[in-house]
Design a protein around this nucleic acid. Structure first.
Lengths: 168, 168
DNA sequence: GTCGTGTAGTTGATGGCTCAACTACCTTCC
DNA sequence: GGAAGGTAGTTGAGCCATCAACTACACGAC
């Protein structure tokens, strides 16, 4: 399984690309998170959570769906939502139908924070990514990362315990 | 500054691309980290650190250079290296020339761990990214992320306190 | 020389994340 | 109907990252 003879190493060009990817993602999130921390009322993670909620019909989503959508563990989401609930950004209530379920709902204050943060967020995303690329480059990036997302999803479902799953 | 009239929002296509990017990076690191945790003797972060060291002439690098190369704060690197030092993977010693400086050096055990982890790491990177893309797609990804890296670097240097800097 | 400022790195307190364990509920099957 | 196993979500302990403060050294100006 760890037999070295079978390994197809990356050639020099592939290594360069790989390192560009690693550095690019690292610098990008570093810059975006620091803009959120310095100028906006929500961290990048909180912003993403509120965006997801705001897109739902009743600004409401099941905890599990939210965790899957944000690609975080259920445990982490529980803790995060608990903190955001204390700040009045969201609140939890029982889900109808399945008595195990819990809904997470965006409050008016949460929506207001989202509206407040959105312009700065979009400006930052443009400055750090969208506007530094040619339109075609940006499009390819989207196609490419959709493929990568699918591969990751497949790998996570197939083998290891995804995130915070007790089953298997 | 947060005047909404001036904001150039993303159109529907751009939003799709942006979300593909977010989900792709999230699922990718999730899968890669879980492979490291389950099958390899080093976490993804530790692996990256040892790779950087192994590329240096004497398998040695200044702490500050290491922090910059890995895009992490000096504080975080200090803690991480302290833990890895306890495991015998690296060790620190005074740098020559500048008496403030500290060198981080790869031990034989650290190199052995790297050699041990490398095949599984490369296999995972291929399965999760390189091999799911057309060669041209992968090349574009490299070009694109190099641009993004540059933009992030510029933003971080220009404005906010980068990571763990006390100056400014 | 020493004052001021900048750089290198560490440290400890705080807060968030992870992991495993747990409750509670649903579903299936006999 | 009840036993077994799956799903939904939470909790607390321990680990890791972050932040601000700190030591120590370097360098330039006067």
């Amino acid at each position: 399984m760890t037999n070295e003879d079978e390994v197809r190493w990356l050639d020099a060009d592939q290594q360069d690309i790989w390192r560009s990817y690693l550095e690019g993602t690292a610098r990008f999130v570093e810059a975006l998170e620091s803009i959120h921390a310095a100028e906006l009322p929500l961290s990048l993670g909180e912003y993403g959570l509120l965006v997801k909620l705001s897109e739902q019909p009743d600004r409401t989503l099941r905890m599990s769906a939210l965790a899957d959508g944000l690609v975080v563990s259920r445990s982490r989401l529980s803790h995060t939502v608990a903190r955001m609930e204390e700040r009045g950004l969201v609140y939890r209530c029982a889900a109808s139908g399945d008595r195990r379920g819990v809904n997470c709902r965006l409050t008016d204050a949460g929506y207001a924070a989202l509206v407040d943060a959105a312009p700065g967020h979009v400006r930052a995303v443009r400055r750090l990514m969208v506007d530094v690329l040619e339109p075609e480059e940006f499009e390819v990036l989207g196609r490419v990362m959709a493929k990568v997302a699918a591969a990751g999803r497949a790998a996570t479902e197939a083998t290891g315990t995804p995130k915070g799953r007790t089953d298997c």
